[in-house]
């Protein structure tokens, strides 16, 4: 059976805020994230630990409710969806690959049966799903379809996790550190598989990664810093992103030179560029 034609879903967030309660305090994991991922795009989410990358991914998967702002996956406004709608969404529209390959599979059945299991929800909601063999072939582990999972290498296990994530050929694939703890060869294999999925199925891919080499291999990266979009990377270039409220997060090296509280003048040039001119003493008038 040939793969059903799918179109990836666009991801749009506007002012996305998520607050959680810990140790008696309310903490903001996301403080207003504006993000646009076009349909069929592959985007990497970068940022330091605790920046909110995994939280953003989790929100996109409908696993958490935003505290404020909007989040749309394709036509689906996740904040307005009830639990049964979210179940349907997770079954048919989004595939999630959790960090750690073993957390994505039932350890006592083969890769093939794991893919079957992952497709159950979609079948129950009337969605046409590809054959499990096709999915496994797409990620490159068809020969290992019936092998016990305990016999697979870490890279093969990650591919199996990827296959489970795309089992229903979802519109969006959310992958949390899909290449962590893999050697270079395995990492490259997994990335290649992700690109193949994107190319064949058209799935929009959002990947959380710490690995700069992985980031370098992705066409676009978004850096999350302190719960907000801190910058983007495209075609090897790093950009700061002007947020909806007009603020402009500085890259880390600029932030070193211009610490918070520094007065700067933003001066347009005739050629369309804008320059930032810090005050001599670097601080406001007395």
């Amino acid at each position: 059976m040939s793969a059903p034609t799918r179109t990836g879903l666009a991801i749009t967030t506007h002012g996305l805020v998520h607050i959680y309660h810990a140790d008696g305090h309310d903490l903001a994991a996301l403080s207003g994230v504006d993000l646009r991922v076009a349909s069929g795009e592959i985007v990497g989410l970068l940022g330091p630990s605790g920046a909110g990358k995994s939280t953003l991914l989790t929100l996109c998967g409908g696993l958490l409710r935003p505290s404020a702002g909007t989040i749309r996956i394709g036509p689906n406004d996740l904040a307005q969806m009830d639990e049964s709608a979210l179940d349907r969404f997770r079954a048919t529209e989004v595939g999630i690959v959790l960090q750690g390959a073993d957390r994505n599979v039932l350890p006592y059945v083969t890769a093939r049966r794991n893919v079957d299991f992952a497709q159950r929800g979609a079948r129950q909601h009337g969605r046409e799903v590809p054959d499990a063999s096709e999915v496994l072939d797409l990620v490159g582990i068809l020969p290992l379809a019936n092998a016990p999972l305990a016999t697979l290498t870490p890279g093969q296990l990650q591919l199996a996790a990827l296959a489970v994530g795309i089992a229903a050929y979802p519109g969006v694939l959310l992958a949390d550190e899909p290449t962590s703890q893999l050697d270079h060869a395995a990492r490259d294999t997994v990335l290649a598989a992700i690109r193949e999925v994107n190319a064949q199925v058209g799935t929009t891919v959002l990947i959380v990664t710490h690995d700069p080499q992985v980031a370098a291999a992705l066409p676009r990266t978004v850096t999350i810093r302190d719960g907000r979009v801190g910058g983007e990377g495209r075609s090897g270039q790093e950009y700061a992103v002007v947020s909806a409220d007009g603020s402009l997060p500085l890259p880390p090296d600029a932030l070193d030179r211009l610490p918070p509280g520094t007065l700067v003048r933003v001066h347009p040039e005739s050629d369309g560029r804008w320059i930032i001119i810090p005050e001599e003493d670097g601080h406001g008038p007395a």
Partner: peptide, 16 residues
Amino acid sequence: RPEAALSRLRGGGASG
């Protein structure tokens, strides 16, 4: 719990 989570994650819902 992880298996229950997987089932929910794949859209099976609490009943699945």
